[in-house]
Design a protein around this nucleic acid. Structure first.
Lengths: 227, 227
DNA sequence: TAGGCACATATTGAATTCAAAATAATGTGG
DNA sequence: CCACATTATTTTGAATTCAATATGTGCCTA
């Protein structure tokens, strides 16, 4: 079965490169949601014709990152409070599953890696370095995912969390929530070390539920506008 | 956020129609896995040019239904025993989640619908009508999913289960497994009526785990070949 | 006859072209 | 001056074209 997103296999085809590049641009916030994507401009920028660009847009639309309006072009999909409520439970369920599987499969070395990352992350927390914290945080979740050796799971997870990750979402986090998150991670590490799949699964699920509220606050609190 | 697969919205664009039509052909087993898809032939059959067909192929590749080899064309993705082990736990987790959410949201009417379907399905079981049984079985799972009112969940679920559903997979089921499945469904209905999300979630998960073995047997037992 | 080698054919990937639709600009009447 | 219709321009969707790559065929040689 073709797994399209994760493996770093030969990327000879222009089309694949464009998909990746466009996805990056969206995630990095270079393209604003709800404003029409100018095909011609993008083509010139990429130095390609419209054919591969349009193919890429259609793939990204099927991933949910792009919205296509017939005869009226494409836009970066906006992310609403409703989308938050639809996606996070799913992400939570997938993380819970990954925790369960990981506990059965993970090696001591892999755990050691995650442990090292964890304490590095705690350090960033103590220094108040939010960006670096997020960076390592994401890496830890990716490591757990990788320990499942389930490429399909990884792909689906990445695709879903990609909808949430545009740069504007890595904004900020309240002090008490941050402390709580670190504590949750403390417990996640313990469960992983004990290879207690049930507990890890439960922890990850509530971790995600809390994160959802944290993201909601960061996104939809003051201005109320869907970004 | 764009949800591409479920809503029955206006399908004006040729590209979307082709995606649906091709997906149907794959699921119905009209195209054999691992044999090259002839673009020209398909174009003539559909009465279209290669551009929209190739766009569709790329979308289906990102869904995992089609495999693209650079400069060597596309094939329907084959489904191996490993794919089975990768997909079913995910489908199980998604069904478990859908059960949980459904219990919180489902109306009495919706439960009544499912109950009616359930007993219709039991009847088909007693008559030994496998095909009709599968049909209603799938409808029941779809109804539970629909009760979540989570379009994203529905899309991901459909996309995943689409990889398993090609016609050849609806082959057969052993007598004892069939009896077991019906009993599981009996309990699923009970949990739903009691709106016991925890139990329903657990039941669905094991239901899927059992189904995985049933499918494996049907697929990879005698000839051993990956279809 | 089997194993390459050169050439012809077919298929793919991507650019270009063209018609249809939407958007912007212009002009006209109230 | 604004509302609306009409015309130009742009943008989209899809077919066509063209170069690059892969596949197939016949021929030659050992």
């Amino acid at each position: 079965m073709a797994t399209t997103m994760s493996e770093p296999i030969a990327r000879t085809s222009l089309h694949d490169q464009v998909v990746d590049r466009l996805r990056d641009m969206i995630v990095e916030g270079e393209l604003d949601p709800d404003t029409r994507i100018n095909e011609k401009a993008l083509c010139e920028r990429f130095g390609i014709s419209r054919t591969p660009l349009r193919e890429a847009l259609k793939v990204l639309a099927s991933e949910g990152l792009v919205e296509l309006m017939p005869n009226r072009g494409a836009t970066v999909a906006s992310f609403t409070s409703e989308d938050l409520d639809e996606t996070f439970p799913i992400i939570g369920a997938l993380e819970a599953l990954s925790g369960e599987i990981a506990c059965e499969q993970i090696t001591d070395t892999e755990i050691a890696e995650i442990r090292a990352l964890h304490y590095q992350m705690v350090l960033h927390y103590q220094k108040g370095e939010l960006h670096e914290y997020f960076q390592i945080n994401q890496t830890i979740h990716e490591k757990i995912l990788a320990a499942t050796h389930n490429g399909t799971l990884t792909n689906i997870y990445n695709s879903l969390s990609g909808r949430v990750s545009p740069a504007r979402f890595r904004a900020n986090m309240s002090k008490p929530r941050w402390a709580e998150a670190v504590e949750e991670h403390e417990n996640i590490l313990k469960a992983l070390e004990a290879r207690d799949g049930q507990t890890l699964s439960r922890l990850l699920k509530t971790h995600l539920a809390n994160k959802r509220e944290s993201v909601r606050e960061a996104l939809f609190s003051e201005d109320g506008a869907a970004v």
